[in-house]
Amino acid sequence: MNELIIDLSESNPREFFGVRNKNLAFLKKHFPKLKIVARGSTMKVFGDEEQLQEFDKRIQMMLEHYGKYNTMDENIMERVLTSNGREDYDNAKGSGDTLVHGVSGKIIKAKTPNQRKLVELTKKNDMVFAIGPAGTGKTYMGVAMAVRAL
């Protein structure tokens, strides 16, 4: 059984692992064959060499994200853990669907077909009028697209 030691002194382990170690539990669920032990600012991982390499690669991507945006949640972890590699994760962050990165790195993008239509029409036209019920994202998307244009 091989061992991997990861030093988390560059980041805040409490915030990285989440409230009540929620993020750590998510990692353990994603890597069930590894034994993950976190103490203070050190994480020790025991298991097969191949899985340890994959785990180290994913953790480094997460630490890079945490260092940049100072936040870590299940959504970010899921994106990093299910990506095909650094290129795929980076492309997902900067994909054409992404309008802007909000507070703490949250991705703001069109979620409904009508919001996507609004974004496409805005790219093609100087002025677009949107009408519809309250709460459908008209103003939210408009502000996101305005911030993107800056």
Rank of each mutant, 00 (worst) to 15 (best):
L4C: 00
I6K: 06
D7V: 02
D7I: 02
S9H: 12
S11K: 00
S11P: 03
N12C: 11
P13M: 08
P13E: 07
F16P: 09
G18K: 11
V19M: 02
R20F: 04
N21I: 04
N21W: 01
F26H: 06
K28Y: 05
K28E: 12
P32V: 08
K33V: 02
K35W: 03
I36P: 07
I36G: 10
A38G: 04
R39K: 07
S41R: 14
S41D: 13
T42K: 11
V45A: 05
Q51H: 03
Q51E: 13
L52Q: 00
E54T: 04
E54W: 00
F55R: 01
F55L: 00
K57S: 02
L63R: 15
G67F: 06
G67H: 10
G67N: 11
N70K: 15
T71S: 15
T71A: 15
M72L: 15
M77C: 08
V80G: 05
V80Q: 05
S83W: 03
S83F: 01
N84G: 15
N84E: 10
E87P: 01
E87T: 09
Y89N: 04
D90M: 12
D90Q: 12
N91I: 04
N91A: 04
A92F: 06
G96K: 07
G96E: 10
D97T: 01
L99N: 05
H101C: 02
H101S: 07
G102W: 00
V103D: 08
V103P: 00
S104V: 01
S104N: 04
S104T: 05
K111E: 05
T112L: 07
P113S: 02
P113H: 06
E120L: 13
K123L: 12
K124F: 04
N125A: 11
D126L: 12
M127S: 13
V128A: 07
F129R: 06
A130K: 11
G132K: 15
T136N: 10
T139F: 05
G142D: 10
V143T: 09
M145F: 11
A146I: 09
A146T: 09
V147C: 12
V147I: 15
V147F: 07
A149R: 14
A149Q: 13
L150V: 13
L150P: 03
